[in-house]
Simulated assay, not measured.
Amino acid sequence: MDFSKGSVIWLTGLAGSGKSYIAEALCERLRFKYKNVIYLDGDELRDLLGSYDYDKQGRINMALKRSQFAHFLSSQGMMVIVSTISMFKEIYDYNRKTLKNYCEIYIQCELEELIRRDKKNLYTKAINKEIINVVGIDLKYDEPKPNLIIDNNQFGNLEQKVDNILNFLKL
C-alpha cells in the first residue's frame, strides 16, 4: 500500500489515551516529507459539524460522518490522519469496507491509568454518576482489532512511538 497517495490513518483509543498527542506529532513528522497531509481531530470536527450527541448512537453517527469526510479527502489524494474515540464495531467494519489504504492504530491505555491522568475529571465524574455517556465507564466499547497497537500506558518517548508508526506504514 502506498499511504502517501490517498489514505486514512485512524488513531483510536479512549479519552485521555494520547491519541491527539501522538496524531499531532505524526502529522508534523509526515509534513516534512509529504505535502498532502491533513489532520482531523475528533473534537474539532465535532465542533465544526455541530454534533454534540454523546450517547452511543450519536457517537456512531458522528464517527460515520468523520469517516465519510476522511474518505472524501483521501479519494482526492490526501493522507488523512484521524484521532478519535470511535471504538465501536460498526465503525471498524465501515472503515475497513469503505476506506482505501486504511490503517487502524489503537492507542492503548488501561482505564486505571486514564483515571490517574484524568485532567478534565471526565472519568471521575462518570464513576460518581455526575455525567453519563463516557466511553469505558457507562458506554461499553468494542476492543479494536487494529493493524497496529501503540502502548501508551507510560508517557515515554513520543518520537519512538511516532517512529514505530512510520516504520509500520513504511513511510
Rank of each mutant, 00 (worst) to 15 (best):
M1S: 15
G6C: 05
G6A: 10
T12F: 03
S17R: 11
S20G: 12
S20K: 09
Y21G: 03
A25T: 01
L26N: 12
C27S: 14
E28W: 02
E28F: 08
R29P: 02
R31P: 06
R31F: 03
F32Q: 04
I38R: 08
I38N: 09
D41A: 11
G42A: 05
E44P: 06
E44Y: 02
D47M: 13
L49F: 15
Q57I: 06
G58H: 06
R59C: 01
I60Q: 05
L64S: 04
L64P: 02
K65N: 06
K65I: 06
K65W: 04
R66C: 14
F69N: 03
L73A: 01
Q76S: 14
G77M: 09
V82G: 00
V82R: 05
T84I: 15
M87R: 09
E90R: 08
I91C: 04
I91V: 15
I91H: 07
Y92N: 02
D93H: 07
Y94K: 10
N95P: 06
K97D: 04
T98D: 03
N101S: 12
N101L: 11
Y102E: 05
C103A: 15
I105L: 06
Y106Q: 10
I107K: 14
C109F: 10
C109D: 05
L114H: 07
R117D: 12
K119V: 10
K120L: 10
K120G: 04
K120H: 02
L122N: 08
Y123L: 00
K125V: 00
K125R: 13
N128A: 09
K129Q: 08
I132R: 01
N133M: 00
V134H: 01
V135D: 00
I137E: 00
D138A: 02
L139W: 03
Y141M: 04
I149S: 10
I149K: 13
D151F: 07
N153I: 06
N153M: 07
N153K: 09
Q160Y: 10
V162W: 12
V162Y: 13
N164K: 13
I165D: 12
N167L: 12
N167R: 13
F168H: 12
L169R: 13
K170N: 15
